[in-house]
Design a protein around this nucleic acid. Structure first.
Lengths: 215, 215
DNA sequence: GTCTATAAACAGATAGAC
DNA sequence: GTCTATCTGTTTATAGAC
């Protein structure tokens, strides 16, 4: 108990570094951010960063790990409330969208961590823990889909492809930045558009795009 | 006529640079690629790159512009074949998926160009032409959705949110890299999985995820 | 159109004082 | 735990010979 508790104690400088790095990495990615910028944003010297993180890669992995842990907690809380598969899926999507809308850096970082696999070697313990968290998230979502299909609540489909579609629909939208804002016509992160997004995604998942067809 | 034709003449070195840069930028993004790598991959000296492109940003914009032009041509060809809105949407999605599957760099570059707006200033003529192409693509897709909704072929929904969903479902999947491969269990770009993707996306768009509901 | 050489700025990381 | 100073390598870009 006590051994794990240190993770949640506040380390002011460390947390400040993580906060600043999270915003910068979300905007410009791993390679696009210099440690001098991070130092500047934290009012610390560049060298002080290396007291808290051994390398830039470790800092990046820590940022990703922190948001994945937060997302996992949010989604598991939504799933744990029970109900039939349809109710749980609706709640899961709503919770996911709320999470991404509340933390505008998360969608971009999540998307980057999924397809910037080339930037990191993958050998740091922080990266492996982040990958494990990601694994657990996808596994619980896949389990829900599988259950819904066996009980007949969901149409029979490929679980993994459906999972990819859910990820694409939810995460991409909140990562689309200026393009999304201009396309939608209002800020993607505004309260009204977040509410509309939930409604639109739910409608698409429930009934598809076509009218009155179940093909 | 003759004035525009020079765009399509072959400029061996220039095209080779674009090819090499396209692969590198797709993997590691704008900031993650050094011009020395591009030079190495083309068997040219670093300085020779500056004879063909004024700056790294211009090279990047040229890469993005080239793939956007290719995608626009592909999608317009699919739309031009006519038919009712449902037929045209199905053909559009199939053509889009085929395009992304045939050119594995495109999904990542497209996604990056949508949300790496911070990396480029946006003032180069190459960037503005790329943005105009992107605008035309989204406009024709929006037009199709609007037509389908007014004729009653599609369920009434937000055109722009539906557009975002279509983009997320199609592009993200082919940009998901190792994560996607591991989730699906087979290479996302394998012929069998591309075929399955088309089928799964069509099923989701036609009937949604729930069984026998049209809510 | 490609090359060598070089400039000038910046990167990540380390040493050691305080 | 933060600092100054420094090392080493790399970055984009330019100048000018061929």
């Amino acid at each position: 108990m006590k051994a794990a508790a240190h993770r949640h104690l506040s380390h002011p400088s460390r947390d400040k570094i993580l906060d600043v790095a999270e915003h910068l990495f979300a905007r410009r990615g791993f390679a696009g951010v210099g440690l001098s910028e991070v130092a500047e944003g934290t009012n610390l010297g560049k060298s002080s960063l290396f007291h808290h993180f051994r390398s830039k890669a470790e800092l990046y992995a820590a940022v990703i790990g922190r948001i994945l842990a937060h997302i996992e907690a949010t989604l598991l809380r939504a799933l744990a409330q029970g109900g039939d598969p349809v109710a749980r899926l609706d709640r899961l999507i709503d919770a996911f969208i709320d999470e991404l809308a509340t933390h505008p850096t998360h969608a971009r970082l999540l998307l980057r961590s999924l397809f910037e696999d080339d930037e990191l070697a993958g050998d740091l313990p922080e990266e492996q823990e982040a990958n494990a968290t990601l694994q657990r998230i996808t596994t619980s979502m896949a389990h829900l889909l599988r259950e819904g299909m066996t009980t007949g609540a969901f149409r029979l489909a490929s679980v993994t492809h459906t999972l990819q579609s859910l990820i694409g629909i939810t995460i991409y939208h909140f990562a689309s930045g200026e393009f999304g804002d201009e396309l939608i016509g209002r800020p993607v992160f505004s309260a009204a558009e977040v509410k509309r997004r939930k409604h639109e995604v739910r409608a698409l998942l429930h009934g598809g795009l076509l009218r009155g067809s179940t093909t």
